[in-house]
């Protein structure tokens, strides 16, 4: 029981809750709109007012397809970021045509810095990258991540959009009265920081620096207000 022994009680609580149909609710129910409001026909998103890590609306958004950019604070660099975003099921997290739930904007360098022998020789050589996303809790929780795998790639500045996610107006949204606030809560977010230590060069096999910095850092991402309209 090397791995799970200390986790089991907590996990079981989550599982039992989910199994009995009461799990997965990360947020309170939607704020009740005025009784006379018309049915919603679109989504409206207001950017958070704080600076730093934030999900901000992209100009390509439409009333039925909200595109959010993740941006970071100025003066900081990182090697990747992942976050979990919860809603209540009244909107759908967008799944892109390639089957992923987030879109790479090109800031993070996902491939090897110095292409290996085969990447060098063969430009189309298939190389897996860590651009990953999915949903949990019956679609109510979006979990996405984009990480540089190669330590040789430099950490990147974070002010430009780092990745995109989409939120779709769906049947459940249409059932809401216009003006309803749709919960959108950042559950957890972590980054690979700039300093992750230096891999020793042969014959040096002292991994102390790498091991001391072998961790992810928690961050807070501000989320704006989402409403059905």
């Amino acid at each position: 029981m090397r791995i799970y022994s200390i986790l089991t009680p907590l996990m079981l609580l989550v599982f039992v809750g989910s199994f009995t149909g009461c799990g997965g609710a990360y947020t309170p129910p939607p704020e009740a709109p005025a009784a006379t409001a018309a049915a919603a026909i679109g989504l409206a998103y207001t950017n958070p007012s704080t600076s730093g890590w934030a999900l901000v609306k992209d100009a390509s958004s439409s009333p039925t397809h909200l595109v959010l950019n993740l941006v970071g604070p100025a003066g900081l660099k990182a090697r990747g970021v992942g976050f979990n975003l919860a809603s209540d099921g009244s909107v759908q997290f967008h799944k892109y045509a390639d089957g992923t739930y987030l879109k790479d904007t090109g800031v993070f360098q996902l491939k090897l810095a110095t292409p290996n022998l085969y990447s060098t020789k063969y430009p189309n050589f298939y190389e897996p990258v860590i651009l990953i996303g999915g949903t949990k809790n019956a679609g109510k929780l979006l979990t996405v991540g984009i990480f540089q795998k190669d330590r040789a790639q430099p950490a990147q500045p974070l002010t430009a959009p780092l990745c995109q996610i989409g939120i779709d107006f769906g049947a459940a949204t249409a059932a809401l009265p216009s003006g309803t606030t749709i919960p959108l809560n950042l559950v957890r977010a972590r980054i690979i920081p700039e300093d992750i230590g230096v891999i020793p060069t042969i014959p040096n096999v002292d991994w102390t620096d790498v091991l001391n910095k072998f961790r992810l850092e928690d961050i807070q991402i501000s989320v704006g207000t989402l409403k059905a309209q």
Partner: peptide
């Protein structure tokens, strides 16, 4: 090891790459 299977875990996988 935070008790949750999610995309954030892949940050740790990225850290481990080539180590």
């Amino acid at each position: 090891g935070d008790g949750s299977n999610d995309a954030l875990d892949y940050g740790m996988l990225a850290l481990a790459y080539e180590v």
